[in-house]
Design a protein around this nucleic acid. Structure first.
Lengths: 224, 224
DNA sequence: GAAAAATCTGACGTTTTGGTCAGGTTTTGC
DNA sequence: GCAAAACCTGACCAAAACGTCAGATTTTTC
């Protein structure tokens, strides 16, 4: 009313767009693009419908913004796959990063899943090319490790996909996971056990026994 | 017109319900429950809308029928997990069965995924209990193998989930898989390679080296 | 502190949606 | 071959959906 609170310059827009996007991603993640009504987004965001239209032209615009934002984080986790590292550590950290993302960003993970089920029609050719490029680069790193005799000769692409699949599962299919584990909801502990299981399987599955000493069940750094 | 074609007794109903369900599962699998319009189902099935309503009370009724049908097949593949078998063969066959299902029933697989993303609200308590019971039984088989020293001490539930996740991935996230493999669509060969990769990882990951002879990359029964 | 720019919003118009219904046609039972 | 049952369907409704807009309010700029 009196103090305009300096620095609130373009803040209103930022804040309201954020409100809308947050409400939207949650709805999209559960009901998909076609199943989500603008009125629902409006209600969930606390803004009147006409105001939603003030910030976004159409439902597509909201969706596209979210896709863009999501893909921006696609490669970050893959940074762990670094040729200078040892494959065991790199893979362990990568799986950890993916798993953490699944747990902390349930909604985004499901949003992505929903878009894939739709056939990824909203992914632009450019975005696909980008994913492809990043994956190819990292596949080359894996192949380097294989040539160096540090990894068993697995197909890097399928290895990645198995990692993506098994980490994402706990976010997207949380219902199945909960039923399977006889819980009403997954706890942090459940995620931890899931992580350890995946690491064990993957590392045992593709790690060449360093020299000839350690093998069999790879331990997951202490008890925790 | 003339010959009533004996045995067409209740056939009309069966045929038309099938048409509707087929169209419906395809739409639900891509657009989810809320995103699918009855008019779309009607159009895709070739039956007028009013006729769809003649066979099914509501959209929910169609959806519920599909869920029921889907769950009926849930346990069948798990038959492979048989205590009388050797874990290596059993797991191999189970993964194969799951993978085949994913490839041959893309639509059903995605329909299920969509329902899970929705939070599985349509699964009745009874259906959940059933899934739980079957899984528990099979988990006990795995534990038996572990006690017998035939498997490394993995958590059976997480083992199952990793299998489910990695096989389903190729159906639900086919777009990602295609982009990753630089193809426009997945071929039978791609599925085969995916299968081999998963088997290798899983079996290496949890199989105890039989006596002390064979180990390292488990071969997947010949070249093919 | 006033004009300009940005933000807000109730009310409205059009189209789509889930669902109904009265009355038609075809199939079946006998 | 005919009555009953099963099946089919165009036309119709009320509610909901998307999107618009003119004008009100607030914030910024100078």
């Amino acid at each position: 009313m009196v103090a305009p609170k300096k620095n609130s310059e373009a803040r209103i827009r930022a804040r309201n767009e954020a409100k809308i996007l947050k409400a939207a991603v949650d709805l999209f993640s559960r009901k998909g693009f076609d199943g989500t009504r603008i009125a629902e987004i409006s209600q969930a965001s606390g803004l009147p419908k006409a105001n939603v239209y003030y910030y976004f032209e159409t439902k597509e615009a909201i969706y596209a913004t979210l896709i863009e934002r999501l893909l921006a984080g696609w490669d970050r986790a893959l940074d762990h796959i670094d040729p200078k590292r040892e494959p065991e550590d790199a893979l362990r950290d990568y799986i950890r990063a993916k798993m953490d993302y699944s747990r902390k960003n349930l909604v985004d993970s499901r949003f992505f899943a929903n878009e894939m089920l739709r056939g990824g029609k909203f992914l632009s050719r450019k975005q696909k090319k980008h994913m492809q490029k990043i994956t190819k680069e990292k596949a080359a790193v894996i192949e380097g490790w294989i040539r160096a005799g540090k990894l068993a000769p697995v197909d890097p692409n399928h290895l990645f996909m198995t990692i993506w699949a098994s980490t994402q599962f706990y976010a997207d299919f949380a219902t199945v996971a909960a039923v399977t584990l006889c819980k009403s909801r997954l706890s942090a502990r459940d995620y931890e056990e899931a992580y350890e299981n995946i690491v064990t399987l993957i590392l045992n599955g593709c790690l060449k026994p360093a020299t000839a000493g350690t093998r069999q069940v790879v331990s997951t750094n202490g008890g925790s």
